[in-house]
Amino acid sequence: MSLLALKDIHKSFASAEGPVAVLQGVSLAVQAGEVVALTGESGSGKSTLLHIAAGLEPVDAGQVLFGTQDMAALPDAGRAQLRRGTVGLVFQQFNLVPSLSVGANLAFQARLAGKHDAAFCTDLAARLGLADLLSRYPEQLSGGQQQRVAIGRALAARPEVLLADEPTGNLDEATGDAVFALMLELARAQGTGLLLVTHSARLAGQCDHAIHLRNGRLA
């Protein structure tokens, strides 16, 4: 049984020229400890697929399954519960809660999920190189530092599935590579399934396997 399974997902958006089909029957699965790369052109539907996987966006047709739990069967509160405890999300930007310090941001989701472990959190911060920055606020950090806090926050809650949307897209190549390597390492160490949206073939190549989206279908 897959940790996360998407089955025959269809999604279209309204536009001035009528509905535009973004996803047309996409299926994929992520296993525990597996790292899956999702690649594709701009507008191919990568981010939409990720949002659907996180339960942020409803589907037109198809199923999103966490284990045996069908996302569509859950009420809004249930989906929020799932995001809180099971899923970790890392976006390209707008990740951090601006009013909380780095330390509070790191611990925030874990505490929400009731899985806060202070020692783990401290260790994580040290590994992410954030130990000296814990009392700072997001706006005082560089882009790379912010992204490391976002990854740390997602991992601190020890999610079963980590969904990351171009987590290194805003970073220079060296920083991006370092952040990416750290994410892979931590995910693998925790047995977390990782679904990673990227447009970089180089990064996709370091994953267990890669799925390519083209015009809303798997290539």
């Binding site: 996180a54 809004d76 995001r83 809180r84 405890g85 951090l96 809660v97 009013s99």
Partner: peptide
Amino acid sequence: LVQLAPLWAMGLTVRQ
């Protein structure tokens, strides 16, 4: 919205 979105993503409902 920008300030609230991360919380929503982290599992707070819109109603909350």
